[in-house]
């Protein structure tokens, strides 16, 4: 009985995998992924809302203190937002980003997050759009407010994997608002974002806006990545680095735009 069961399992695996890699099941797979896409994206969204709601109760004791801190922070941020908007407006990456992309003849595909997978990777997202929608490896992903949140790292027919910028394997060329190449943005092990390989003579300070420097056929230049939070300088090193903050909660992202370039 045991041998027969093992034989049937191996046979089933061979048929399923053989059919998949020969493309025999493609119509069924497309149909299944399309049909399941809605309940899965809805599940992701509900889960996010559920845990956010649950989290609010958990932190109830700290809410008063947090509220006070936030009020003070908001006052500071209001001022920062005004100067930030002005800086962005000047570089054509403001709220009219879509207009900017249109002018550059760039197209974006709107995608919903299905899952973060079961591979214990907090930087992974799977979206419900894939090669059929024109998505290819290396394309840039924008989150809320047109902020760069990650890159496409694997594409299937009707879905794609995104790794967030905070992943250590994702890199992206970065520039300052004057458009000068500045360094490389890369994820750090503590899930923060780092700007590396900045020449020592280049002046960078807290609050500087960092944008993409562009990458041939994959990433347009001038997309907002974040702002400098802290600069790290060591006399023994050739380059200096900085920690970046992003104006969106990347972990809370459930709708993203994939820039087709």
């Amino acid at each position: 009985m045991s041998h027969r069961r093992t034989f049937y399992i191996i046979l089933a695996i061979v048929i399923i995998l053989g059919g998949h890699y020969l493309g025999l099941w493609r119509p069924i797979e497309r149909l299944a992924t399309r049909a399941l896409s809605y309940p899965l994206t809805a599940g992701y969204s509900w889960g996010r809302d559920f845990f956010s709601f649950f989290g609010r109760f958990q932190n109830n004791a700290d809410l008063k203190k947090e509220n006070q801190d936030l009020k003070e922070r908001t006052a500071v941020l209001d001022g920062e937002i005004i100067s930030l908007k002005e800086a962005l407006r000047q570089k054509g990456i403001t709220d009219e980003q879509l207009e900017f992309l249109k002018q550059e003849k760039l197209k974006a595909v709107l995608a919903r997050v299905i899952t973060r997978g079961v591979e214990n990777n907090p930087n992974q997202l799977i979206i419900d759009k894939g090669a059929r929608d024109g998505i290819k490896n290396g394309l840039v992903i924008l989150g809320r407010g047109g902020v760069v949140v990650g890159r496409v790292t694997r594409v299937e027919d009707t879905s794609a994997q995104i790794l967030l910028l905070t992943d250590t394997s994702v890199e992206m060329g970065a520039a300052d608002v004057d458009g000068g190449l500045l360094g490389v943005v890369k994820g750090n092990k503590d899930l923060s974002l780092r700007l590396n390989y900045v020449l020592k003579e280049k002046k960078i300070t807290k609050g500087d806006i960092i944008i993409t420097s562009g990458e041939k056929d994959l990433i347009p230049a001038g997309l907002l990545i974040g702002e400098i939070d802290q600069v790290f300088e060591d006399e023994r090193e050739i380059f200096k680095s900085a920690r970046l903050t992003q104006p969106v909660d990347v972990a809370n992202t459930d709708i993203v735009s994939v820039i087709l370039f």
């Binding site: 309940p39 899965l40 994206t41 599940g43 992701y44 969204s45 509900w46 889960g47 996010r48 559920f50 845990f51 956010s52 299905i114 899952t115 973060r116 997978g117 079961v118 214990n120 990777n121 907090p122 459930d254």
Partner: peptide, 18 residues
């Protein structure tokens, strides 16, 4: 599958009841 892959995965990524 829905619970493990999407609902819990949205925040509690280490949770895999399957």
């Amino acid at each position: 599958f829905w619970l493990s892959f999407t609902f819990f995965s949205s925040r509690a990524i280490y949770f895999n009841p399957f």
